[in-house]
Each structure stands twice: as C-alpha cells, then as structure tokens.
Design a protein around this nucleic acid. Structure first.
Lengths: 215, 215
DNA sequence: ACCTGAACACCGTTCAAGT
DNA sequence: ACCTGAACACCGTTCAAGT
C-alpha cells in the first residue's frame, strides 16, 4: 500500500501505539519494528515521523509529565498541601505507566512539560516564602521521593522484590522474616510506604520552614 | 591462543573489566563484545564464566551493595544515627558508580548482599522499638530517597538536567531562572538537596516514633 | 508526500569444533 | 577444560527507489 489517500502514520499515532506496547509488553517488547508492524507498516516508515527511538521515548515521558495535576497543587493555600497534591498526582501517574519510570529518571532535559512542572512547584515555594536556594532543594527532595518510590515499585516493590521461598529468608535473614510476612498485602505496603515517607518529609520541611523564619 | 596454561578468564576478571567499562563509557558502551576484546578474547568465551549479560550486571550491583557500610550504621546507638549513616554510605557508593543506578532500582531480587542490607536495617529498627509494619515502611522510605537522589544525579542532576541556554528559561519558566542561576555550584546543590531531604525525613520519623510510643 | 526493500553496522547468545 | 569461528535471530537506522 504505497501512497494511501490519508497518511497511515503521524507522530501522535506512533506515540499512542508505542505507549500501548510499552504498558502491555514492557521495555524489552518495545522495538521500532514492533511498533511498525502493530501499525501495519514497516519499521523504516516510522523515521518519517520521529527522529529516533530515544526522542520518541522522551516525548512519551513529557506527555506523561503534562498530565501531572499541577493546577490542583497550586490552588492549595499552603505550600505543604501543594507539595502533597503534586507528589500524589505525580506518583499516581507513574504507577499507571511503570515501564516509563526508568526514562523519567533521565531528568527534565528538553521536555517542556517536565520543565513547566519544575517551574510551577519552584514558584509556589518561592511565593510561600522559602528562600530560593531552599525552594530548589525542597522541590528536589519531593521528586526524589516520587522517583525513588516509582522506581522501587517498577522493580516489583514488595510483591516481587523478594522470592517466594520463605525458608530461604528464615535461615539467613532473620529480621526480614517479619517483612516477608507482609508479602500478602504487598501493594498496600508499597502505597503506604510512600505516604509515610511523604508525610515524614513534609513534617520535617514544616519544622525547617519555622526555623528559617525565626532564625 | 587456545588452551593457555593459566585460564585467561574468570568470573571476577570479567566483572572487574565490566565495571571499569561501565564507569568510563556508560551503559551503551557496555557490550559483551566490548568486554571480551578488552580482555583479549572473543565474546563467546565469556559465556563459559557468566550465564547472561543480565546476570553479570546483577552481580555487579550486588558487589556494590556488599560495600555499603552497614556495620557503622548498626553501631550507632540511636536508630536515627543508624539510618543516617546507612543512607549516606549507600548514596556515596552509588555516586561513585552512577551508571549502575538504573540496575539497582530493580530491587533486591536474588542479590544476597542487597538482602543482607535490608535485613540489617530492618532488624535495627525493630530493635529500636518500631512496630514491624512501620519498620518496613521507614526502611523503604529511606531507600526511596537514596534511589531517587542517585537516579536524579545519574541523569545529570542540576548540572546537566537543564540546558545551557539561559534565555530559553527566562522567557518561559520565570520561576526557574533563580534555580538556573545555581547552575554554577550544581554538584553542591545535588549533595545538599539529599542532606536536606534526609534530615527532613529523619525529623519526621522521630516525631512519628514519639507519637506511636505515646499513642 | 509517504511508504517500502534492502542493506549496514551492530547486538546477545549458542554450539560444534579445535587444542 | 578453555577458547574460537561461524552462525542465528535479532536490533536501530539510512537511503535509493517506487507510486
């Protein structure tokens, strides 16, 4: 089928299929040839619409970042509530597309939506009265948490991070046995750990903020 | 050279060279063929000593985990000091081999040293009086921070995460401009952000611990 | 303008064969 | 026992050619 009346391909059609394959078949399953055949086309054809596979993945990440609910985060009166809303929205999105997490970790790069996100959070912290340098660090801290948590869950979290052979743990890692018993409600623990970590951090930042103001 | 008197290869010789290449040439530079030629050997020969490339990388990660200073962390009297020492030692090691970070994120899997590490920290928290379920979450929280921070630094941190074109930021991301001015002392910010994040978390956990005890 | 065929320079991995 | 040659089944990417 050479020269169809309406083009078979477009950047967005390729991106959509790529994300679909990434979600369902994982990182190893995502090849240019695989995307192409799923679209009824040859691999070479993709290069008329995307420059490289790397750039395609970068744009997928940026599309995801664009969906992080920043408006809600900024509507909060207090910066603590704003950070909490941002972190939760961010994490929820990553949880939906876990196979994308390793790419997200490559930093804001040339991704406009990622930059807009960083800019918005930084601005909110400045407006709340954080000194610029601290605003940078507080924003970074929360993103560490989100990325670290997403990364851990990507790797299976508590549900798959440990083997199923209980006895192996009993023998050699006595303290972990208790942790291993939590195997059953693993997803619960993954989510709760993030919440505990987030609240502990926010607590600490609140205290730091008071110290900075009174110091 | 078929059948030398002393074998040219061994698991540890392959691992050492692989780490060397990974550190100096990055993830993309690490191929089985590259390791082989660096050792004066053909790629096929490696498979007499390592099962797969994946397993080779897993063992590199585990060797790294084995070097995290757990003894020091456990010698601390208080659990707060122990967590702090562990987190710092863990992070310092990852900073030395940033290209390994994406693999670390794949969880403890079948890596004995990683498991030993998790076991030791969990045990210390139990001994300090944390309820088992919370001990799991507190340990996970700190590892989120370490992995998130390492992941971010792997991607270049503040030094490389943003472009060099200042004007691009001035126009579109007004709040980030301040952050961008920090470009000059980027490494400092990367390290300080981790410290700020760590101390905030520890502060929060200390408060949580008190609440649990008195509640 | 848009897609294809065929090729290039790579991968990880296997396995019969050499010594 | 230890390494090699050659191959297999893949990759991402390019580019002249077709319509």
């Amino acid at each position: 089928m050479p020269r169809p009346s309406t083009p078979l391909l477009s950047g967005s059609v390729i991106k959509a299929k790529a994300l679909e394959i990434l979600d369902s078949e994982g990182l190893d399953g995502l090849t240019m040839r695989r995307i192409a055949t799923a679209l009824g086309v040859r691999a070479a054809s993709l290069y008329g619409h995307v420059a490289t596979k790397d750039e395609l993945l970068d744009s997928l990440v940026d599309d995801l970042a664009a969906q992080v609910d920043i408006a809600d985060a900024l509507q909060q009166r207090d910066w603590v509530g704003g950070l909490r809303a941002w972190a939760r929205s961010y994490r929820a999105l990553l949880a939906e597309h876990p196979n994308l997490v390793p790419f997200l970790a490559r930093g804001p790069r040339n991704r406009p939506a990622s930059l807009r996100q960083a800019d918005a959070i930084h601005g909110a912290l400045l407006a709340a009265g954080w000194p610029p340098r601290y605003a940078t660090m507080v924003g970074a801290s929360v993103s560490y948490l989100v990325i670290g948590a997403a990364m851990t869950q990507y790797s299976g979290g508590f549900s798959e991070g440990f083997s199923d052979d209980v006895r192996a743990y009993l023998d050699r890692y006595p303290n972990l046995y208790d942790a291993h018993r939590l195997h059953a409600y693993a997803a619960e623990i993954d989510g709760e750990s993030f919440e505990v970590a987030l609240e502990a951090s926010l607590d600490g930042f609140r205290a730091l903020f008071e110290r900075l103001k009174s110091g």
